Computed example of a mutant assay.
Amino acid sequence: MASIARINSNSERYFAALAVAELRALHSFFDQHIVEDRELGYFALDEGDYNALPAHLAACVVHTVHGAMLDEF
């Protein structure tokens, strides 16, 4: 599920998307990506929604927060 921050400045959008990605990563096996879009700004994207990211999205990833849940137990 993609989450879009509705904030004015680009840096505020980035940090809002980062906060969402870090929070979601705590409860996910999947990586959370921060994606930059010209129209939407920055948004958090759960890798589990897409399996492998399509090339057009992968090219726009600016930061990744790794999923924190472990499947080793």
Rank of each mutant, 00 (worst) to 15 (best):
I34F: 00
N51Q: 04
H63S: 13
A17S: 09
H56I: 02
A17P: 05
G67L: 04
A5F: 08
A17Y: 04
H66F: 11
S3Q: 09
L45R: 04
S3T: 12
H63I: 10
D71A: 15
V65E: 07
E12A: 15
L70Y: 04
E47I: 01
S3V: 11
A21T: 01
N10F: 05
N10K: 13
I7S: 11
I34N: 03
L26M: 07
F73W: 14
R13Q: 13
G48K: 08
E12N: 15
I7G: 07
V61I: 08
R38L: 00
I7R: 12
Y50H: 04
C60T: 07
A5W: 06
S28L: 03
C60M: 08
A55V: 10
S3R: 09
D49C: 11
N51Y: 00
A44I: 11
A16R: 10
A21F: 02
E12T: 14
M1G: 05
G41Y: 00
R13C: 10
A68H: 11
A58V: 08
R6C: 11
A44N: 10
Y50S: 02
I34Q: 00
A68V: 09
S9P: 12
L26T: 10
G48W: 01
A19H: 14
A5K: 07
L18V: 05
V61C: 05
Y50K: 02
N51T: 02
L18F: 06
H33F: 01
I7W: 11
L70Q: 09
V61P: 04
D49F: 09
A59Q: 12
A21M: 01
S11A: 15
R38W: 07
E36P: 09
R38F: 06
E47R: 02
I7L: 13
D71F: 12
P54V: 08
F15P: 09
M69H: 06
A25S: 06
P54N: 11
E36V: 08
H56Y: 13
M1D: 07
A52F: 12
E22A: 01
A44L: 05
F43T: 03
Y42Q: 04
A16W: 07
V65N: 03
Y42F: 08
H56T: 07
R38Y: 10
G67Q: 08
A25G: 04
A2D: 11
A44C: 09
A16D: 11
A5V: 08
A68F: 07
H27S: 06
M69V: 10
F43C: 03
F30L: 00
E12Y: 14
D46V: 03
V62N: 09
I4M: 07
M1E: 08
F29M: 00
F30A: 00
H27D: 05
R24C: 03
F73R: 14
A21R: 04
H56G: 05
